[in-house]
């Protein structure tokens, strides 16, 4: 049942683009979307961004809407930094649920999830509305 729900949610989000909530540990202050984008591009180092696996529809949507780049462009962007010792891509977790748990237990971390899946373990610090 749960799997079906996730599958249909995934389908739903890829069809009509859900709102995205940027979440952090409850103790974290608000961060502007500009800053979130900077953090996910590895240009600001105070918070630790958490990513979803490559090809995850929500990751593709987030990168397109918040960072303005396609998956291939993001890969090219990181390959410029990874092979030169200038930066590392964000850590990846397998699922939205794993991301919520990671962010809830790491005070300086930051993630993005579908706005509809926000729990009280985390705090929404910014929203990308569609």
């Amino acid at each position: 049942m749960k799997k079906l729900l996730i599958a249909s949610l995934t389908l739903f989000s890829s069809l009509c683009m859900a709102d995205i909530a940027v979440i952090a540990h409850p103790a974290t202050a608000d961060v502007s979307l500009d800053e979130v984008s900077r953090i996910y591009m590895g240009r600001a180092g105070n918070l630790m961004p958490v990513n979803l696996p490559e090809n995850h529809p929500l990751r593709d949507q987030f990168e397109q809407e918040a960072l303005g780049r396609s998956p291939a462009q993001m890969k090219a962007y990181w390959s410029r930094l990874v092979f030169t010792g200038k930066g590392r891509p964000p850590v990846e977790v397998d699922s939205v649920q794993a991301k919520i748990e990671f962010v809830a237990s790491n005070p300086n971390s930051l993630g993005y999830i579908p706005a509809s899946e926000v729990t009280d373990q985390v705090r929404v610090i910014a929203t990308i509305a569609n």
Binding site: G45, N46, S79, R80
Partner: peptide, 28 residues
Amino acid sequence: NNQTRINAGRLRTPFYRYSDFMDVGYAY
């Protein structure tokens, strides 16, 4: 710190914009 890193050893000489990743064709 988060803003500053030191690299020591055999490095790419940063002549050009793409020096660091000129061999990584995927990057351009």
